[in-house]
Structures are given as C-alpha cells and as structure tokens.
Design a protein around this nucleic acid. Structure first.
Lengths: 326, 326
DNA sequence: ATAATAAATTAAAGCGCTTTAACTTTTGGA
DNA sequence: TCCAAAAGTTAAAGCGCTTTAATTTATTAT
C-alpha cells in the first residue's frame, strides 16, 4: 500500500496527499480531511526510505553515547528526546564505547544531524562528521576549540562545592579528583583550588582517582591509616564520594560528624544513601535542550558560527556535609 | 556522487558495482578489484535510503529499552551490538520509558527486526510490531505466552541465592522482594520459597520493596526497630541490598558478621562496595547473543515457531555473606 | 462581467539503488 | 575445433516518495 492508493481512495492526486503528509498549507480544508480520512482508513504510513531518498531529509537526529550506566547521561538523553519531539524529529541512539569507533554508523541518509555525548576521545567521530558534512553538536566535551558545544561550568561547580565546605567552617579540605584526561576533572579541580586560594587556604591534599567507588575507598583508607584525615572532602564525582563514605563508616567514623563529604553529578543513589549526599547537580534538562536547539539552528542556517555555551551547575545541600565542630 | 560515478571510474556497469557492494560471488576478481579501488578513490559510500527502498532491507535492528541506568542492561546491549556486527547488522537504540510509547519509532523501512528489552509494559509495543509485521524478540519479559523470548531462570537464581544462605547455616532468612508486577520479582520470590521449603524452613519475612536503595534501608531499619532482625537477607536486587547494608552499618551492625546479605544482578557497585556484595549474576552476554540469534533465525525463516529460551544465572559469592556464628 | 492575481492541483521527472531478464563471454568436454 | 553449459555483464524497470513547472480553479480589483 502506498501513497497512490491513498490518493485514489481520497479522490485526489498523489501530490495532494504528499502535501498533507508534509503539512503544506496549500491544501483546501475539504481535501485535507478527505486525505486524512483515507490515510486512517487504510492505516497508511509513509515509507520512510522513500521520503528520505526523495527529499534528502531524514527527520532523525543521531545521538552517540559511550555507555549506558549513568544517571546524568540518562537525564540528558531524555531531555534531548523530549525536545527533539517538539521539533518533529526522532532520536536514534548509537552506543560507541571508547575504542569501538567502527560501531559509529551515522550517514547523511540516516540522520540529519548528530549530537555527541562523549566526554572524551571524540576526535575521530568529529572528523567523520566533518568529512561527511553532517551538522553536529558536542555535549560535555573536552576538545572545545572551534566547535559548537554545550558545556557545564565545572570550574564553578568545583568552586561552589568547596566554598560550601569553607562556609561551614572547614579549613582542612581535600579533593579527590578524577582522571586528568577529562576536562571536567581538571576544571572541578581548578574550582577547588580557586575557592581555597580566595581565602588563603592550602588544600589538605589533591589526589587523582578514577571516577569509581574503589578509588574513593582506597584514598580515604590511606588517609585514615596515615592519621591525616581532612575534616572535609570534595570528591570529583558521586561514586568517589560513595566509596569515601563507605571507607569512613567502615573505620568507625561518621559522616558528616567526623568528616563532611560532597560529591558531583547527583547520581540516583545520592539522594537514597544515608546520609544523603550533598552534591553538585548538572542541569541535565537544560543541557539536552540547549544541545538540540543549537543543532536545529545549525540545520536551518548552515552559516551559523561555531559557539560554546556554558551552563551553570547547582549545589544541592543534603546531609553529608555539616558545620565543623570546633 | 553515486554508484554510476563509481561504475564509470571502474570501467564496469552499475550493476557490477552493486554486485560487489552486496558481496555477490559472480564478479570476476579483476573487476571486483577495479570497483573496490574506484570506491576507495572516490570515497564512496552507498546511499542507505536508496538501498532500503530498492531492496526492502535495512540491515538495522532496533532495540527498545526503558531506561539507561543499569549495569545489566548495558551488558545486554553491548552483547547485542557485538553479535549483530557478526551478522552484518547495525543497532539502533530506541529509548521508550514506560508511558511514552509515542517515542517508539520503528517501522519496516527503518529496521528489519526489533529486540524488546523492557521488563514490563510491553504489550502495546508488541501489538504494533505484530501489526506492522516486523519480526521481534522479547528479552527478560514477563508476558511469555506465545512469544519468542529469552529469559533468565529467576526461580533458579532465587533458589541458588537462598540455598547459599542455608548452606552457610542460616535458618532465619528474610526476603525483600521486588514489585509483584515484574515476573522476575515473582520468580525470585518463588525460588526463595522453594529453597526454604526443601529444608522445611519458614521464611523470617517476605516484604515487597521497589528495586531501590530506600526500600532496603527502610525495611531493615524497621526490623531493627522491632528487634526482629533475620540472620540473613536475600534482596531481590543489588540496590535493595545496598540500602539494607547501609541501614545495618548505620545502626552499628556489621555485614556479614551480624547479618548476611545477598543481592541480584551484579551491578557495578556490587564488586566495589565494602564488603563486596554476594549476588546473582545474569548472563548478560549470553542473553544478548541468544536474542540476536533467535531474531536472525526469524529473519531467515519466517515460519520459525515461537519459542522461549531460558538461561541460567550464576551465584557470585563475595564478602557480604558468611557462615552463621552459633 | 472581465482581466489580473492568487490559490490549489496536477503531470512528469528524478532521488540512488537493486533486481530481473536478456545477452555476451569464458570454460571444458567430445 | 566446436558446442553446450557456466560464468559474468548489461539494459531497463521500478522501489515510494518529493519537487518543479505547468495547468486549472478561485478570488479580487476594475
């Protein structure tokens, strides 16, 4: 069953049917209704491949992510999907873990544009997109030069987190950073240092972990062993923070009574663990929406200049931080 | 640039080019090489939409999932992607959270088949697939009648978990179950009951949580408050187990010394939390591969009968369970 | 009422590929 | 060497839609 059958049934030409499918305004209301009725009666759906071939448009946007195991990513993806719907687009997710670039499948006839949601190692993907002349946007990405991307101000996030601890009276504050290869790690650390420098404080320590529970656990355990525990810790993400809390409580220490802890990302468990974790939340909804909006702008005006958008994170104070006992 | 340009450059006909693209065997090696060279020289990629339109095949398989925040799902998705590659297919992920069926986008011209990886509420999706005559496979799904699906034997998982606790000498064992709407919840509970019944033990308690940390925390806290803590707990998933451990340690109790805990799913944190969580691991790789294989069979032989495949979970003993102190 | 303009509709071409059927070349057995 | 069968190649049609340009119908100004 095809567009011709619909035209026949509605008593109009094929082109008129195409017009109403594509929302053209030059169709008499009477005919539009006839077509709509015929489509419904025949349970007709336009052939996607044929439309793409004829029009050169797919109405789908590709989204590449590196993994599927993160509340933050999930929030962004859902926001993108929602926003895309408003624009009449459909989302196609493509999972490309680091090192599996061969699974990157987007071509012009598959997608009209691509959103890259990989915090690292995206260079090859971008190269492919440029070569294929597919419009794209980078989200949360490290390599920001010359590219259109939306970022969250991690410096500010690190700064706010640290400032929160300082405001609570802490003077002996440590940072468990993420891997240096991530821009976000470097920036959060920078924010940490900036906040301390402002009040002429020296960091208790800055150690690099790897965004996993175990590094938080090990580092804190070592501090305990060496009897040089800080009074407050800013962890580069919630997983590290969870590991840190786990270590403290296993050594008979209390959070936040003995040590205050603050994380980053507001993972799902952050609000469910006891004590609930104070953290820095990235505006997932805004990130996704802004990404879509930028891409849509690019699609409608190819001359659009490359731009960087920075969004602001938000400090969420819960129960893992408290004023220093003097 | 199109297939004709390639043909011209290679000095053969368009059809010959098409033949080598599609791996036909009836092309002289000399010509095949000429075509391949021309394709490379022109940096040519066949137009996907045109191929789909002409052949009626997409070489893409759709995968619908409900959320993106789960180690188990991630494992299955990756396995599917890998296996699909062997068959020359490409994966398109479609996120359809419960209640957003309007985001379900698969049509015949987009995918050759669909894998449904939603543990619940899939009826409407299946209806659509049947109506559109798109081959599909259900994974880990509750409504198993008449459908082709791959399931993991949750009864056995529940049984093994409970048996492990019994073997360790525990007699006072509780179960924190998942919501009854999930088949997996019901089956894990059934396995729990079966293991106890076998040795003529009565469950200490069976309470329904909701697959979240908080329910584990609350239920265990209540048991403590009521001074009727079991010596061992089988939690229907790792999140519940984590909440339970969190509650115990916050009340000054030790895992596994005071209470043994076993979870389900082997989430990422299970091996990172201290104590490391004893759990039941589902064979993510096998699940994904079996799902793909079944779908491929369906694609090559439409007459294929509907079948249910059951895979076996695996008990992973770590440090959150130990022999009962007499 | 009529010409000029605007609105709505149509016929026909074409998007880039695969497939069928017809044709040509190669191979091997007598 | 010749002929039949096998192997390889080609021309032409068509997949289902959109788009352009041409045509018809409706609307407005005179």
């Amino acid at each position: 069953m095809n567009i011709e059958d619909v035209a026949k049934k509605a008593g109009v030409s094929v082109v008129t049917v195409s017009r109403v499918i594509n929302g053209a305004t030059t169709v008499r209301e009477k005919n539009r209704k006839k077509v709509l009725d015929a489509m419904k009666a025949l349970n007709y759906e336009p052939n996607h491949a044929a439309r793409v071939l004829a029009s050169g448009k797919t109405n789908v946007i590709g989204l590449t992510i590196g993994h599927l195991n993160d509340t933050f990513l999930e929030g962004v993806v859902k926001a993108i999907d929602r926003k895309l719907k408003d624009y009449g687009y459909v989302l196609a997710l493509n999972v490309v873990p680091v090192g599996t670039i061969d699974r990157f499948v987007f071509q012009k006839e598959r997608v009209d544009g691509v959103i890259l949601l990989c915090p690292t190692d995206e260079t090859k993907l971008v190269e492919q997109l440029v070569e294929k002349d597919i419009p794209y946007v980078l989200i949360d990405n490290q390599d920001i030069e010359q590219k259109t991307s939306v970022l969250v101000d991690n410096i500010k996030g690190g700064y706010e987190a640290t400032k929160h601890l300082i405001d609570l009276g802490h003077r002996d504050i440590a940072h468990i950073a993420g891997p240096n290869m991530y821009l976000s790690s470097r920036e959060r650390k920078e924010g940490f240092q900036k906040a301390l420098a402002e009040v002429h404080l020296k960091p208790h320590d800055i150690i690099h972990g790897d965004f996993k529970m175990t590094s938080g656990y090990q580092i804190v355990s070592q501090w305990i062993r060496e009897k040089r525990l800080p009074t407050a810790i800013f962890a580069a993400d919630d997983f590290i923070a969870l590991g840190a809390m786990n270590a403290l409580v296993n050594h008979g220490l209390k959070v936040p009574d003995d040590v205050s802890i603050i994380g980053y990302d507001d993972q799902q468990f952050a609000s469910q663990y006891v004590p609930q974790l104070t953290t820095v939340k990235q505006p997932e909804g805004e990130i996704g929406e802004k990404g879509v909006q930028i891409l849509m702008d690019k699609l409608s005006d190819k001359s659009e200049q490359a731009k960087i958008y920075r969004l602001e994170p938000e400090l969420i104070v819960r129960h893992s931080t408290k004023a220093l006992n003097k």
